[in-house]
């Protein structure tokens, strides 16, 4: 598996898109810091970008890589290798290279602007962590779509659709259901509904760290009690891990059964 991972990883590291992605974050990081002059404000702006962009790049890049490396995959399948090894290796290769682009692309400008001394260190780390999680989750989802659809056009549309669904449509439905059922106690529902969407979950995780907790607490103590504490933080991270592991499990299962 490590060998396959290495191949995929080096293949991607050499590819133009990784550099573009890396440079994009680098420029974004410097631009934000240059324009804002304060790390804490830059972190808030960055959150908006990360929560929307990393899932999108993850899905599109994942599905692109899956389809373009199809011949390589077929070649590997002819070798005495386990299917799990091949697909997990490829998956980790893509996810890791994207995560590295993200971490270095944003980490460098922030380190350059003296993040180490800033109080925002923890928030920034959490931001990168949730960015990494989102990348891993959405690349896995893209791989599942790829494994299920041999038709590229279909695969791409599904990938974009799933991003759209989780990033925009889910919130829309969430909002409408909150408004329709406003006469009922909604605290628990809201809490659970956020758990079912990794984008929402990471957004709220970061928001709470950025001291907007009092705004949220306005609706009722339950948010504050849950997300404001260590338990809430660890539960959220735990849910994100589950969000990563379940799609990976599906990749393995699909890969085992698939005909090539």
């Amino acid at each position: 598996m490590i060998k396959v991972l290495q191949y995929s990883f080096y293949d991607l590291i050499r590819s133009r898109w990784s550099y573009v992605y890396f440079l994009f974050y680098l420029v974004l990081g410097f631009a934000l810091l240059f324009l804002n002059n304060s790390i804490s404000k830059a972190v808030i702006t960055l959150m908006n970008v990360i929560v929307v962009l990393t899932p999108m790049i993850g899905t599109i890049f994942g599905i692109m890589y899956y389809y373009s490396s199809r011949e390589f995959t077929e070649l590997l399948l002819a070798q005495p290798l386990r299917r799990r090894t091949i697909f997990l290796g490829q998956y980790l290769g893509v996810a890791l290279s994207l995560t590295l682009s993200l971490v270095f692309g944003l980490g460098l400008p922030f380190a350059f602007y003296g993040l180490g001394q800033s109080a925002e260190m923890g928030n920034f780390a959490l931001l990168l962590l949730s960015g990494a999680f989102l990348t891993f989750i959405f690349v896995a989802l893209a791989f599942i779509i790829g494994l299920r659809n041999d038709n590229r056009i279909k695969g791409f549309s599904y990938a974009i659709l799933i991003w759209l669904l989780l990033a925009v449509i889910y919130d829309g439905i969430f909002l409408i259901s909150l408004i329709i059922f406003e006469d009922y106690p909604l605290d628990k529902f809201t809490l659970i509904a956020t758990m079912f969407n990794p984008i929402d979950l990471s957004r709220i995780l970061i928001l709470l760290k950025l001291d907007i907790s009092a705004l949220l607490g306005y609706t009722g103590a339950i948010f504050q009690k849950f997300f404001g504490t260590q338990t809430g933080l660890f539960t959220s991270l735990g849910v994100l891990i589950v969000w990563t592991l379940v799609p990976v499990y599906f990749i393995v299962r699909l890969a085992r059964k698939k005909d090539f």
Binding site: M47, N48, V51, V52, A167, V168, I169, D171, G172, F174, L175, L178, I179, E182, L186, D187, T190, T194, D200, R203, I204, L207, I212, L215, L216, Y218, T219, G220, F223
Partner: peptide, 20 residues
Amino acid sequence: YIVGRTPETIILLRSLFIDI
């Protein structure tokens, strides 16, 4: 305006859907 009506919706603060 929405948050004024249904305070729970504040949970969607800074979501892409809300920006749209």
